[in-house]
Design a protein around this nucleic acid. Structure first.
Lengths: 236, 236
DNA sequence: CTTCGAAAGTGAACAGTGTTAGCAATTGCT
DNA sequence: AGCAATTGCTAACACTGTTCACTTTCGAAG
């Protein structure tokens, strides 16, 4: 029963195999699209056969979800790294860097972005979901945390009147902000900003601006400025 | 050679068969998701076999694209109907109705919306595309037309300075606005508004607000108000 | 009215998919 | 050394898109 504490060589090679599966699956996704990420193709690339993969994932969907979870982590790490490029005393600059990094990651990895965020309506559901410990919160938390810090700085002018129907909903969101006693109408601003940021990135990453613009970056910068103004940090 | 002008019974039954394929494919999409829209399933539902469908569509992808094209038409018709609920003398009210209808359609038909707009990153590409006569322009044109009419009303305050890199891009967009000599910086406002509208609808339709809100309608109304303000019609 | 040809649909077949069952071999722990 | 878990394989089943050869149907021209 030493296997629990000690890495136990077997665990190591298993971890290595799991990692190779992830890397192979992702490579197929990037190079040939989602339809190419098939059990047999992954196995072929790894020099083994498809049923062997069932020793590592209980199904094709399980493998895809593991890949999605891994990508959520990568995105969260990238956002945190961008955040740490600026001092904690400047939450506005941090937020700017994080939002730009979110866009950059989405544009640099469109297939991965699609797997994470264009999937609730597709076959295999890899969406963030609702549970507290969901992989989606790992990267969402980075942004929400910065929003809370921006709120502490003051400058947010939340709407005075709030539809009563929102109260219950926003209270649930507040649960995720451990300990922070953020007013509900401020959380409303958070959600609105989140939606706008995500909408801007998604529309661009999904290519729905290609018909008009080959370089939508200035448009995104304008949107980003709006978002930060709403969050009380108009310094550009 | 009378078959060109006259409907010629054969054409009629063929049209009927094509229509039944569309309806069956859509029903499968709605009831069981995109993965269920398979040639054999469609044929089974219609009481025939899969190869028979090749008399109507050259491939599975071709059938899906035909379905997408049909859905673009339906959406365009729905938007036009919402537009016509208000007099042409009130382009602001018309725009409001069209935007609300776009959101309503997306929420009422999430699977269809996903087929149309979440697909560039998926297997079968059913995105609008760039060509002038693309099905995507059928519904996009409804919105752009209203934007032009709002511009004629005045009230748009476009940015004075415009990045030179945008000029070429926006000139291409202007080509689609037959005859209208819209200034480029006004077209910039069009594109920005389009992106914001689409981002708001897409984020909500893809379920990325479910974690926070069970009823994001007030948030959309707020966004819509912002959009119309940018387009020079702040009357709510 | 007969004949002819295009159109529509079928069944068989091929390569590919996810998945399961059963078997062989390697590996690590006692 | 021997036991048992782990790992991977082959074979097989049901499904997918697609092609081919064949039959049937049906509209139109002689």
């Amino acid at each position: 029963m030493t296997s629990r504490a000690a890495p136990s060589r077997r665990h190591r090679v298993r971890e290595h195999a799991l990692d190779e599966i992830q890397r192979t699956a992702r490579r197929l996704l990037v190079e040939q699209g989602p339809a190419a990420v098939t059990l047999r193709a992954i196995a072929r690339e790894m020099g083994m056969t498809a049923p062997g993969l069932y020793r590592y994932h209980s199904s094709h969907q399980d493998l895809i979800q593991a890949l999605a979870s891994h990508l959520y982590d990568e995105l969260a790490t990238a956002l945190a790294a961008a955040r740490d490029e600026h001092p904690a005393s400047e939450p506005g600059q941090r937020m700017r860097a994080v939002c730009r990094q979110l866009r950059r990651w989405a544009l640099a990895h469109p297939r991965e972005f699609g797997l994470l965020f264009a999937k609730p309506l597709t076959d295999t559901d890899t969406a963030p979901g609702n549970a507290a410990h969901d992989p989606g919160w790992r990267f969402g938390g980075v942004i929400l945390e910065l929003m809370v810090q921006l709120w502490h700085r003051g400058g947010i002018h939340p709407p005075a009147d709030l539809d009563t129907a929102w109260i219950t909903q926003l209270e649930e969101v507040r649960e995720h902000l451990a300990g922070e006693d953020v007013p509900l109408n401020v959380i409303y601003v958070f959600v609105a900003s989140w939606a706008r940021l995500f909408g801007a990135v998604a529309v661009e990453a999904f290519g729905h601006l290609d018909f008009a613009l080959t370089n939508p970056e200035p448009l995104f910068e304008h949107t980003l400025q709006d978002i930060l103004t709403a969050l009380g940090d108009p310094t550009g």
